[in-house]
């Protein structure tokens, strides 16, 4: 546990060295926040009433929490593990008395932490200052929201980790990464809330892990999901976290047996 925590801290420090990137992230997130807020408000105005349980304050909360969590949850994936598999550096990870998946998860939680502090908090504060958005309705929503954010980070990590590990079998995984990004970006509820999807697409989304990466924590924090529904939203996330981490373990084990690091 102490090892895990130290690895989280290392991830935090490692990513805090790139301060300019954080600043650029805040700026981009905020600009896109304004654009997306305007679009959603226009859609709500033309509908004349709430759509799919979102009125103006909830929709604004949806936008700004989405922007705030964008850097925290690694929706776009990472290439570190893939690169280490390709170069053979993954061998070094196997020489440590820790589980590589847990070590990378810890590092990613650290990365999420610095992004939450450096990008997320400024974005949500800016959104809250300039727009009349809905805040979590109760202390329970805050706490459950925080848990849900951590789970979202874990689910996104676990999924990306599996994708990265495909490098054990494929020379180039860029195509798969791209597919994952596009599908994930749509189905996680980043562009539009999942409840706004047509029924067929919503069904697909709800059977996928992607809403667990963004839609669920946002719904809890925006107060659209309350009471016992919070428990089921979090339970779905727990399910995906466990399932994808488990899958990652299986793939990692198979990959280790396949490992043929030549030379060096």
């Amino acid at each position: 546990m102490r090892t895990f925590w130290l690895l989280v801290r290392a991830g935090f420090r490692r990513h805090s060295t790139y301060r300019l990137a954080l600043l650029a992230g805040v700026t981009t997130n905020s600009v896109f926040g304004f654009i997306r807020a305007s679009v959603l408000l226009a859609a709500l105005a033309s509908a004349g009433s709430a759509i799919g349980g979102y009125d103006a304050p909830t929709a604004l909360a949806f936008v700004w929490w989405g922007q705030a969590l964008l850097g925290t949850v690694n929706l776009w994936g990472f290439a570190e593990v893939k690169d280490r598999v390709r170069t053979g550096d993954i061998a070094v990870d196997f020489l440590r008395p820790v589980d590589p998946q847990m070590a990378y998860l810890a590092g990613d939680l650290g990365r999420a932490g610095i992004n939450l502090v450096g990008r997320g908090v400024p974005a949500i504060l800016l959104g809250g200052l300039l727009f009349d958005l809905a805040w979590p309705p109760s202390a329970l929503s805050w706490v459950a929201g925080a848990v849900s954010v951590v789970l979202a980070v874990v689910v996104a990590f676990a999924g990306n980790f599996v994708i990265n590990l495909l490098a054990f079998w494929l020379v180039e995984i860029r195509g798969i990464t791209l597919l994952w990004m596009i599908t994930g970006g749509l189905l996680c509820g980043l562009y539009l809330p999942v409840p706004w999807f047509p029924t067929w697409l919503r069904t697909i989304a709800n059977w996928s892990p992607f809403p667990s990466m963004l839609q669920n924590p946002i719904d809890i924090l925006a107060g659209r999901v309350v009471g016992t529904d919070i428990a089921s939203a979090v339970a779905v996330q727990v399910f995906w976290a466990v399932a994808l981490l488990g899958l990652g373990q299986l793939v990692l084990r198979a990959g280790r047996r396949r490992l043929e690091v030549q030379g060096g």
Partner: peptide
């Protein structure tokens, strides 16, 4: 792995972006 120390001349086991000291702290914890 607990009883073994390995150095591959062409690979690094250190944390590239962090001060050297941190690598020792993390490895100690590992």
């Amino acid at each position: 792995a607990r009883r073994l120390g390995v150095v591959f001349g062409q690979r690094s086991q250190l944390w590239w972006d962090l001060p050297l000291r941190d690598s020792f702290t993390i490895l100690g914890a590992i």
